[in-house]
Design a protein around this nucleic acid. Sequence first.
DNA 1: CTGAAAGCGCTTACAG
DNA 2: CTGAAAGCGCTTACAG
Lengths: 339, 339
Amino acid sequence: MTTRSTTSKRGLTILDVAQAAGVSKSTVSLVLQGSPLIREETAQRVQEAAWRLGYVYNRQAADLRRRSSNTIGVVINDLANPFFTELLISVERKLVDAGYVVLMAHTHEDVDRQRKVLLSMREQNTAGLVICPAQGTPLTLPRDLQGWGIPSVIMIRPLGEGSYDFVGAQNSVGLQTATQHLIAQGHKRIGFLGGLSGTVYKERLAGYSKALKKAKIPLDEKLIISTKPNREGGREALTRLLQSKEKPTAAVCYNDITALGALTALGDHHLRAGSDFALIGFDNILDTAQSNPPLSTIDIHPAMLGEKAAGMLLKRIETPTIERQIFFSEPDLLLRQSC
Amino acid sequence: MTTRSTTSKRGLTILDVAQAAGVSKSTVSLVLQGSPLIREETAQRVQEAAWRLGYVYNRQAADLRRRSSNTIGVVINDLANPFFTELLISVERKLVDAGYVVLMAHTHEDVDRQRKVLLSMREQNTAGLVICPAQGTPLTLPRDLQGWGIPSVIMIRPLGEGSYDFVGAQNSVGLQTATQHLIAQGHKRIGFLGGLSGTVYKERLAGYSKALKKAKIPLDEKLIISTKPNREGGREALTRLLQSKEKPTAAVCYNDITALGALTALGDHHLRAGSDFALIGFDNILDTAQSNPPLSTIDIHPAMLGEKAAGMLLKRIETPTIERQIFFSEPDLLLRQSC
DNA sequence: CTGAAAGCGCTTACAG
DNA sequence: CTGAAAGCGCTTACAG
């Protein structure tokens, strides 16, 4: 974190370096790019001069000239949910390690905001895009992005039938596994907490239904409580369920933060997950390992999903013509203390 | 999210637009910048042509020419802590609303990674920087950034005595308030959970000591458990304390996630915060409103801090010569159920 | 291995 | 109000 000259001049160009090193502009450019065309000795002299002068490479200019870009846009729907933060973290890490710098935008599930940031990233000429679409994103998005010529991968929420790179989870399988586990433990009245709409919601709900059907347990609509998929929603959902006549003895959840909220509701009623009620979450966010009590959940490996998405994008940038890439992470039942 | 031409050509320039609209290049440029020099009627014709062609403004080129930039770098130390995520969210929102696009980097408390991303952002020629320094960041950082000529604001963790814009919290006051509240409730043995080192740690610990001293309660080193400031750390810290001979009846925490971990430890021992033990966190992250039980905490208004930091940076960019800006958020005791 | 020259897509005085 | 010209800081053939 030290520069030779404390007040390094913006405005120093390769021409200045060239002069100082006694070579031509092009030679400096080649050296800066690590070209093997330049003699080692010369390269050293140039590097040294650049350092001494406090020269700063101007990537804007280079990118303009080469018609390239080393930025990648990452747009995320909801960072209040640690699941998406974990995704962001692993995407960012992989992209930075690959030499990119990431343009990040948070949409707050706001489609209009999303539209704006995408437009803005387009003007920035990003080399690629990884996006967790906001709820209600038009299904034309993947096609639009392709029209723009920007390599993209969509995460978590599928966007219709088009041919676009995608990374997600086996939602139905995951929730089926969770529900079956509770059934195997002897539970008959099992709630489904949280979530409002969207493909992911439908898939997860389908997994729940399927497990019940297989066990010949009739599906009771009153056990499905639809709320926003966050802590408040989970708390509210379970509270409602606990006040109903035929209380359930267990519940699966749309996602982990909903389950975390449900834990709070249990506490409100002086109940404890594990001994008094069985609860299973979905995602396996880091927080669940240290919740009160630690939450059993369906692990869809958030960090791995992010890395996968970044990897796909890098491949797509490298070879734009490769065929469609899709990945669904396999859910693993992770037993802790809440069931 | 629709473009007129589905496969919009990168490679369309203002020259193409000029031709299509029957005006000169400069006129198009002026229109694109919303200059009042151009007749409304002409402007419309140009806009229409740009839209029809699927023209995309090339900000790289514009920025190069004007020697400007519309990106701002945001570098964050630890997104696994929701406090910093909330900071990031509000910083990002304010910057995007001001017309910038944000280059985001996560350092994982890794000083070396931080050095690299800062170098990279410098090459990108960012208009400014807001940074939550990684633990162990050299105190020369603010001076280096000034040397680079990049307007910057430092968040949360002060970096020595230099003259740099800063946004943080009144750490000592906050922890003193929390501790005093517990004392007022009759607690005599009060633990201090989590945290390892750093200025912030020292300040918070000082607030705790001060409150004890004021109440003439001797400080017992055995009640100060130093661990990583995260959930595991908090759980471990309180577990250790609960196994000691003279158990405390209450504890304050380095931060909220530590407190959340402590809640888990309490659960492990079939204890409940509020009735069996009094616990107060620090930060007021969103999660604490729905923890089990909801956590009393010191509210330092995370979202407001982020907005403040972004606001400072915008001002600094606008007027580089204004004098030093500093802000410390006033901590408010927020009583919920954990004490 | 090195140098002179053109050009990436814009903006900005400067004339008209 | 509009057009011709120079230039932002690089890269990339192309000669030598």
